[in-house]
Design a protein around this nucleic acid. Sequence first.
DNA 1: CATTAAAACTTAGACCACTAAATAAATATT
DNA 2: AATATTTATTTAGTGGTCTAAGTTTTAATG
Lengths: 194, 194
Amino acid sequence: MANASNYQIDAEILGLEAKAAYNFALSNQRTAMDKIEEVLVSLRRVIRATDLHSKKLVKTASVTGPQLLLMQILQNKGDMTISELARDMSLSQATVTTVLDRLEKRELITRVRSQQDKRKVYPQLTHKGSKILESAPTALQDDFVRRFKNLNDWEQGMIIASLQRVAEMMNAETLDASPFLDVGALDRGEIERS
Amino acid sequence: MANASNYQIDAEILGLEAKAAYNFALSNQRTAMDKIEEVLVSLRRVIRATDLHSKKLVKTASVTGPQLLLMQILQNKGDMTISELARDMSLSQATVTTVLDRLEKRELITRVRSQQDKRKVYPQLTHKGSKILESAPTALQDDFVRRFKNLNDWEQGMIIASLQRVAEMMNAETLDASPFLDVGALDRGEIERS
DNA sequence: CATTAAAACTTAGACCACTAAATAAATATT
DNA sequence: AATATTTATTTAGTGGTCTAAGTTTTAATG
C-alpha cells in the first residue's frame, strides 16, 4: 500500500500512453463486460499457471507449497512464533502446527522454545532446510524471470504497475469485506469464474 | 495464445507510453532484480488475494474451489466426459471422480451414462447446482469488478495486456518444461518466492 | 468368433492441508 | 491466590490429490 518502492505509473506519468490505449480500445469496440471477462480469464490463467508451477515444485523440491512458504517466511523474517506465522500465512495456528510437524519430522526445521516465555515456540530452519530453500524455488522461476528480463523496460514497468493495481484492488476488496482481521477462519480453494 | 480477442498492445501501439515509462524507470534507478522482485511480490499478493477469495467463497457458497470450477466448466462447455474435465482442470481422472462423488451426494450434479458409448459418463448440473452457480461466484467478484469498471479505459487496457503477457510467459514456461501434456501427474500447492 | 488391447471410469490406499473444538501450559491480571 | 488470557498442541472430521489396481465396455485383430 504505502510501499516506498511502489510503481506509481498513473495518468500523469503515462498520459501519452493513455491516448494510445484508449484509441485501441475504441477501435476494437470492446464493451465493459468484455473487458472484465478478459481480466478474469487472464487472471485465472495466471493463477492456473502458478498453480501448475507449484505442483511441479512439489515433485522437484519435495516440499509442498505451504511448507515452502513457511520456510521462506522463516528465512526472510527470522524468529517468529507459531501465531505470527499463522497470521502471515493466513492460516490457523493448528494448521501451522501440523505443517511444522511434517517439516520437523523431515528435519527441515527444529522447534526452539523461548526461555523468556516458555509458551512461545520459535521454529528454526535447519541446515538441511536452508539448502532446500536455496535450490527449490529459483529453479522454477528461472524461465519466467528470463522471459521477463527480455521485455522492454516500458513493458516491464507496465506489468509491474498493472499487477500492483490488481493486487491493490483485490486487497481492498477482502478488506472491506472483512473489517476485522480474521485469522484462521477460512478454507482452502482454487480460482473461480470463467 | 492465438486468441482472437487478445489485446495486442505492443511497442508499436504504445510507443509513446514506452518513453514515459522508460523515463520513469530511469528516474528511479530501478535494477533488473528490483523489478523482478516487485513482479513476484505483487504476483504473490494477487494469488494470495484470490486464494482468500476462494476461501471465503467456500463459506458463502458452500462449495469448494475445485467443485465450483468443475460446475462452471460444466455450465460453460456443456457435455463433457470425466477425462475431458480432468484435462481441462489439470487433474487426474480419479480426482475428478471423487470431486464428482461429493457433488453428486449433495445433488448438485448427476451422472448420465452415454448410450452410444457406455463407458462414457456425462456429468450434468442439476437445477440445484445451477442455482448455486448463479449466486455464488458473482457475489465475490462484484467488488473487484466494480473497482475495475471505475478505472480509466487506458488503465483497463494496460491491465488486460499485462495480465495476458504474464499468463503467456508463464504458460510458455510450463509448456517447454513439459512438452507432452501430462495429465494428472501433479500435486496441490501455493505460491512461492517472496 | 474369440481373444486381446484400449478406453473410461471407479476403488483403494495413502498423504497433505485445513478447520473447529478441546486440552495443556505459561503468563497476566486483579 | 484465583481467574483470565495467551500460546501451542492434539484430536476428529472434511476435502483434495495422487498412484496403482480394478471394472466394464468398446474396438481391433488374428
